[in-house]
Simulated assay, not measured.
Amino acid sequence: MSDRPEQRPDQRPENARPTERSRTEDEAERRKRSGHSAAHARIAHQASWVDQQVRVAMAKGEFDDLPGAGKPIKDLGREHDPDWWIKRLVEREQITVLPPSVALRKEDAGLDDHLDTIAFEGDVRREVEDFNARVIKARYSLSPGPPLVTMPRDVDATVTAWRERRAARLEAQRAALAASRPEPRRRWWQRRR
């Protein structure tokens, strides 16, 4: 008696190679099953079903007065561009991609306005130090585009200028508030003659 389980002749072990006969039997069984399934029938009649649904909708008038009816299709005459979606995203979101030297120059021009929106001196100091670190990193890296002409800022001088601008803004706000307040009305007993 052997240790192997008995095999029926119609079954083959998992590690056995399929023979030409078993392949043709498998193919015949697959064709038989797929030809009689409900899914096969649904797929075969899908196109006619869709056409019928469109005809019914047209008869009901569901396609009348759609937005854009009678107008030309936008960008129909252009040649196909595989990156059309990214270009539309850039246009819609107004994204600009600048070389690092130009981006740092632009950030340097608007840094004082950005610093004026910050309320605490420690945060201003961190922003200037972060800007300086990026400028120094860009100076020592090879980057495409025009050369970097932006210089790191003096942190203490920038913070002092921020403090002065902030004091001037607060004083202007106080003066505007004082000017907008009406003079207190004098009561009848306080009036001078």
Rank of each mutant, 00 (worst) to 15 (best):
A175E: 11
A179V: 04
P100E: 13
L66M: 11
R31L: 15
L115C: 00
A47Q: 06
G145W: 03
H114T: 03
R187N: 04
L148A: 01
D108A: 15
R163N: 11
E183W: 08
G77N: 07
D130N: 13
D112E: 06
A179H: 08
S37L: 12
M58T: 01
L148I: 02
L142V: 13
L111K: 00
A44S: 11
D3R: 12
K71A: 09
Q173E: 04
R174K: 11
T117Q: 07
A179M: 08
H36A: 08
E129V: 11
L104G: 00
D75P: 03
A133G: 03
R169E: 05
I136P: 02
R23C: 07
K106Y: 14
W188R: 11
A103C: 06
K74L: 10
R174A: 13
Q94H: 06
G110K: 02
Q46S: 13
I136M: 15
A175G: 01
V155Q: 02
N15V: 10
D51T: 10
P18W: 09
P100F: 06
R169G: 01
V155D: 00
K87Y: 00
W189H: 06
V135R: 00
E107S: 13
S34V: 15
L76E: 02
P100G: 15
I136D: 09
A175R: 13
L66F: 08
R23F: 15
V54E: 01
V50W: 04
P13C: 07
P67R: 14
A109P: 00
I86Y: 05
R55M: 06
P146K: 07
L89G: 04
R153A: 08
T19Y: 14
V50L: 12
R92Q: 15
W188M: 05
I118Y: 00
V56L: 05
K74I: 15
T158N: 08
V54H: 00
R21K: 09
R42M: 14
A39S: 12
R33D: 13
P82Q: 00
D83Y: 14
A59T: 08
R55I: 02
A161H: 04
R192I: 15
L142W: 06
I95C: 02
A103D: 03
E62W: 12
R8S: 14
D130G: 15
Q190R: 11
T96R: 10
E25D: 14
S141E: 09
E29K: 12
P184H: 10
A172Y: 03
E20W: 11
H40L: 06
V90P: 00
E14M: 14
D10F: 13
V102P: 00
V97A: 03
D116C: 04
G35Q: 05
I95A: 03
E14C: 14
E121P: 04
D108G: 12
A109Y: 01
A172W: 05
E27V: 10
